[in-house]
């Protein structure tokens, strides 16, 4: 079919795929952060939230597969484009090259992308699969008894008194290791940098960006990325500095 052939075959098609999957992934990491920030509240919040997500069963898996597919498409398209781009440049490099206008964040997308990928793999290994730090993973941490109901949009999804996994402790204990916390902080920094170009860039690729609001868009994206970075920084910092028990 023409549509699929063009989407997968053309440069713009692949860029459109990157932009669309990038948008999904931005939505995901944003939601993920908002959920995680519940760690700063009563333990009922984050533990109830985790239990709720786990209880979704097949729906959770559907979301996971979708997100993994988006990530895979994003990475596949990015890699193919990068290889094509390198080939297009030719064998003889410029003896002198000066950047004119390109934003710093845009110059290192492939490197930040790589680190982010490594981070995601580690992150999943750490908190989802439990391979990275088995000592602090869920099987090895205690259970927690909910002291109040956990509600989503007014609906009670986890009742008080339910035995749930103590995810909060898992997170805090995980970040007590300085190397892990440091890697995490560097990685979210690079992820934020990746988003700084990516979140702005996807508007261009999807064809909804114009000089008229270029500056406004850049400002909104910058504020978003800064907030995202600080939000993510807060959890390991708090764990390290002992604000979270």
């Amino acid at each position: 079919m023409d549509l699929v052939r063009n989407l997968l075959g053309s440069t713009i098609g692949k860029k459109l795929l990157m932009a669309a999957t990038g948008l999904v992934l931005i939505a995901f990491v944003t939601g993920h952060l908002v959920g995680n920030l519940q760690v700063f509240e009563n333990p009922d919040r984050i533990n109830g939230y985790a239990h709720f997500l786990q209880s979704l069963g097949p729906a959770l898996w559907a979301v996971r597969v979708f997100l993994l597919a988006c990530a895979a498409i994003h990475i596949w398209a990015g890699t193919v484009l990068a290889l094509e781009d390198r080939k297009a440049r030719g064998d003889e490099p410029y003896a002198v090259h000066k950047w004119i206008d390109a934003a710093v964040s845009s110059r290192y997308m492939r490197w930040t992308g790589f680190v982010v990928l490594a981070f995601i793999l580690y992150h999943i290994a750490q908190f989802t699969v439990g391979a990275a730090q088995p000592a602090t993973f869920k099987e090895n941490i205690g259970h927690y008894t909910m002291t109040s109901d956990y509600r989503v949009m007014g609906l009670t999804v986890v009742r008080a008194g339910t035995e749930v996994l103590d995810v909060r402790s898992m997170v805090i204990l995980g970040f007590r290791r300085r190397v892990v916390a440091l890697f995490y902080m560097v990685a979210v920094g690079l992820l934020s940098l990746h988003l700084l170009h990516g979140a702005d860039s996807l508007f261009q690729t999807l064809g909804v960006r114009s000089h008229r609001w270029e500056r406004g868009l850049k400002a909104v994206v910058a504020v978003f990325c800064a907030a995202y970075f600080l939000g993510n920084l807060a959890i390991p910092c708090a764990a390290l500095l002992g604000y979270l028990h």
Binding site: G9, S10, T11, I12, K14, K15, L81, E84, D85, R86, K87, A88, R89, W99, I100, D101, A102, A103, S106, R107, M109, H197, D200, S201, Q204, T205
Partner: peptide, 14 residues
């Protein structure tokens, strides 16, 4: 354009 071997756009506006 693609067939001739030009690269893709990474929205850097150089």
């Amino acid at each position: 354009m693609d067939g001739l071997g030009f690269g893709g756009c990474t929205n850097q506006y150089e």
